[in-house]
Nucleic acid binder design. Structure first.
Length: 583
RNA sequence: GGGGUCGUAGUUAAGCCUGGUUAUAACGCCGGCCUGUCACGCCGGAGGCCGCGAGUUCAAUUCUCGUCGACCCCGCCA
C-alpha cells in the first residue's frame, strides 16, 4: 500500500515521489495552504496541500480531521529556508501531496493524544488510543527489543526455550492461586501458575540442562504500582551449577539488557554483593537502595545501662536501639514533627530526634542521657553540629524494617538519592525460613524447593539461623529477580518439608510427583527468575508497571477496556457445576 | 482487611475551607477568515446529572454520612 515510512524521510530523499500511509497527527489549515503531520509507527513528517501543486487534493484536504487515516502520494521537497523544524528528525523536508485517499475517518477522540497530563483511568478505557502515542509506542518497541535480546543471549549460551502449562495444579505455599474450573471433572480446578517452578525443575530431570522461558505468571494478591496479577518472568533453570554459575550467566543477561535499553554500561561490573544480614543491619531492607548512604547504626551497646525508660524496657526485652544521622540539615521543629508523624504512619511506636547545634544536643530526651551515653553516641555516629539523629527502639527485626522505611523517607524527602546513579546489587545468604505469625509455623522465605547452604538432615537447632542457597538481584532498591540452588535429593527435600511442618502424606499428595522425580537421577540444579515487566520499567525509568504492560489491570484487578472480570451466563456456570454464594 | 489522595464541559484543572448571581479557564470541538505553519494565528459559537444515593438547611458543586470508581501505601505478594 505504501513504499515509504513517514519517520524515515531525510534530505537525501528530496525529489523522490513517495507513497505514505498513516494518521493525521495535527493539521494547520492556513486556508490557502494546508499543513498536516502524518504519523506512522516510525514517526511523523509534514505534508503540504497546496492549490498550486494539486488543486483537487487541496480542495478535499479541508475536510481532513485529526486521526483520519490517509494514504498519500507526493514529492519530497526541501523546506524553504527559515521554515525547517529542527525539533523533528524529518524537519528539513516536507512532502507535497499530489493525491491522497482517506482510508478511514475518525470521530473526535475522548482525549488528545499529545496531552501529557492524562487521567490514567481514561487512558486505560481507551488503551488502544493511549498506545497510539509515540511515547507509548517507544516503550513497547523497547520491550519487543528486550524479548529478542533475552532469547538471543540465552540461546547463544546454550539454553533451550520450552513452554510449560498454564492449566496446572494448585499447590499450597506461596501466593493465592487463580483457579480455573474443569468442566470434564466437576468440582475440580486447575490453577494458573504462580511461576513455572516445578516444571522447570522437572525439565532438569529430563536432562535439558539449560532451560528458559519468557513465562506468564499469575498471582491473586493485591496490586501495587509495581505489581500486576498477571506478569511476565524470564524464567531460567540450569543443571550441574553452583550459585556462582547462575549468577555469572544471569549477570551477563542483565548487563546486555541494561546496555540495550539504557545505551550505556552499568556502573560496576561484576555487580557488588551483600549478605542479607548486612543489608538488614545497614539498610533495614532486603533490597537496599544504594544510590544514597544514610546507613543505620546499632546503638544498643551504648544504652545497655540507660535510665531512659523506652530504651531500657526495649533492651531488657531483647530489643534494639537503632539510629540514622541526617547530615548537615538544620531541621525546624515542624520538619521534626513531620518526621515523627511519618514514623508513626510507618508503624513505629515512636521516633526520637536529637539535634546537634553549636550549643550542644537538643532533644526532649536529652536530659535523661548521661555524659557517657552522649559522648559514645556522638562518636559512634560521628555527629557534628547541624546534624539530626533519629532513633527508634523495638524488637530487632521490627526496628530494622522500620528504620529501613524511614531511611527511604528521609532519602526521598531530603533529596539524598542521586537519581542519575544506577546501583545493582546481589543480595545473598538469605534465611531459608521465616516465621509466619498467622499460620504459627515456619514458611520458606524463597520457596520450599530452595536448598540450604549446608545439608540439614535431622536438623534440630535454630530455624532462623539456617541460611539458604538463594540470591536476589536488586536494582536501585527494587527487586528485579531472585533464585536459588534447589534440593536435588529426595531426602533433602523431605527434610525441608519436615522443617515446614508439612506432613509426609500431605507432601506425597501435593508434591509426590516431584519427590518421585528427584529419586530418578535428578541432577544438581538451580535457577532464577526475573520480573520482565519490572526490568523494562526500571531500565526505561518509569514509575508504574502499567506503563510497560499493553493492557494492564487497575488496582482492583479490572480491565477498564474490556470490563473484565464480568458475570458469565448462568448456563456456563451450570455446565461447570458451579454455584455462586453471593449475587 | 486497614490508612491516605482524588472524582466539576470531550480532556486537564479552578471554585468547595467561609452554602445563595448565568459554575470559571485552557486545550479540544463546530462555523468564518487566513499561502510558510509546525502547540499556527484571528473572530464567533456550542458544550455540565458538579460520580451516585441519602441527610442537614429556606437553599448543597460547596457541610455530614454512605456508596461506586481511579491512584498511592500497610497487610498480602514462596
Amino acid at each position: 500500500m505504501r513504499d515509504t515510512y513517514c519517520g524515515t524521510l531525510r534530505k537525501d530523499d528530496v525529489a523522490r515521489t513517495v507513497t505514505l500511509a498513516g494518521w493525521v497527527f495535527r493539521r494547520r489549515d492556513h486556508g490557502g495552504l494546508i499543513f498536516a503531520d502524518l504519523r506512522d509507527v516510525t514517526g511523523i513528517v509534514q505534508i503540504v496541500f497546496s492549490p498550486e501543486i494539486a488543486k483537487e487534493a487541496h480542495d478535499r484536504a479541508g475536510d481532513i480531521r485529526g486521526e483520519y487515516v490517509l494514504k498519500v502520494t507526493g514529492s519530497v521537497r526541501k523546506r524553504p529556508v527559515e521554515t525547517e523544524n529542527l525539533n523533528i528528525p524529518t524537519g528539513e523536508i516536507e512532502v507535497y501531496v499530489s493525491d491522497f485517499e482517506v482510508l478511514n475517518t475518525c470521530k473526535v477522540l475522548p482525549f488528545q493524544l499529545d496531552d501529557e497530563d492524562m487521567n490514567e483511568a481514561v487512558r486505560l478505557k481507551y488503551r488502544y488510543l493511549d498506545m497510539r502515542r509515540p511515547e507509548m509506542q517507544r516503550i513497547f518497541i523497547e520491550r519487543s527489543k528486550a524479548y529478542k535480546i533475552t532469547r538471543d543471549y540465552l540461546t547463544s549460551q546454550g539454553f533451550y526455550e520450552i513452554e510449560t502449562p498454564l492449566l496446572t495444579r494448585s499447590t499450597p505455599e506461596g501466593a493465592r492461586d487463580f483457579i480455573v474450573p474443569s468442566r470434564l471433572n466437576p468440582s475440580m480446578f486447575y490453577a494458573l501458575p504462580q511461576s513455572p517452578q516445578l516444571f522447570k525443575q522437572l525439565l532438569m530431570m529430563s536432562g535439558f540442562e539449560k532451560y528458559f522461558q519468557i513465562a506468564r505468571c499469575f498471582r491473586d494478591e493485591d496490586l501495587r504500582a509495581d505489581r500486576q496479577p498477571e506478569f511476565t518472568q524470564i524464567d531460567i533453570e540450569m543443571s550441574f551449577v553452583t550459585r556462582e554459575d547462575v549468577i555469572e550467566v544471569n549477570e551477563g543477561l542483565i548487563i546486555t539488557l541494561y546496555e540495550a535499553l539504557k545505551g550505556k554500561k552499568p556502573p560496576e561490573v561484576p555487580f557488588p554483593r551483600m549478605t542479607f544480614a548486612d543489608a538488614m543491619d545497614k539498610y533495614g531492607s532486603d533490597k537496599p537502595d544504594l544510590r544514597f548512604g544514610l546507613t543505620i547504626t546499632d546503638l544498643t551497646p551504648v544504652f545497655l545501662n540507660t535510665e531512659l525508660g523506652v530504651f531500657k524496657k526495649t533492651i531488657e526485652s531483647g530489643g534494639s536501639v537503632k539510629a540514622l544521622v541526617l547530615k548537615g540539615r538544620t531541621l525546624s521543629r515542624k520538619d521534626l514533627d513531620v518526621a515523627v508523624d511519618t514514623a508513626k504512619e510507618l508503624g513505629s511506636g515512636g521516633l526520637i530526634w536529637i539535634r546537634k547545634d553549636a550549643d550542644g544536643l537538643q532533644s526532649p530526651i536529652v536530659k535523661f542521657l548521661n555524659d557517657e551515653e552522649k559522648s559514645q553516641m556522638i562518636s559512634r555516629l560521628g555527629v557534628e553540629p547541624g546534624d539530626v539523629v533519629f532513633i527508634m527502639a523495638d524488637k530487632p527485626q521490627k526496628v530494622s524494617d522500620l528504620m529501613g522505611r524511614f531511611r527511604l523517607y528521609l532519602g526521598e524527602k531530603y533529596g539524598l538519592i542521586d537519581k542519575s546513579l544506577d546501583k545493582f546489587l546481589w543480595v545473598i545468604d538469605f534465611p531459608l525460613l521465616e516465621y509466619n505469625e498467622e499460620e504459627k509455623r515456619y514458611v520458606a522465605r524463597h520457596h520450599p524447593f530452595t536448598s540450604p547452604k549446608e545439608r540439614l538432615l535431622g536438623f534440630d537447632g535454630d530455624y532462623e539461623a539456617i541460611l539458604a542457597n538463594a540470591y536476589d538481584l536488586v536494582f536501585n532498591g527494587v527487586e528485579l529477580g531472585g533464585g536459588s540452588i534447589r534440593n536435588h535429593r529426595t531426602e533433602d527435600q523431605a527434610e525441608m518439608f519436615r522443617l515446614l511442618n508439612i506432613k509426609e502424606d500431605e507432601a506425597a499428595d501435593k508434591f509426590g510427583f516431584l519427590l518421585e522425580a528427584l529419586e530418578m537421577g535428578a541432577p544438581p540444579h538451580g535457577g532464577i527468575a526475573f520480573g520482565f515487566d519490572r526490568i523494562i520499567m526500571m531500565f526505561l525509568g518509569l514509575s508504574s508497571i502499567r506503563d510497560v504492560i499493553a493492557f494492564p489491570k487497575t488496582q482492583k484487578g479490572s480491565c477498564l477496556l474490556t470490563g473484565a472480570p464480568s458475570r458469565v451466563a448462568h448456563r456456563q456456570l451450570t455446565e461447570l457445576k458451579i454455584r455462586t454464594i453471593v449475587d
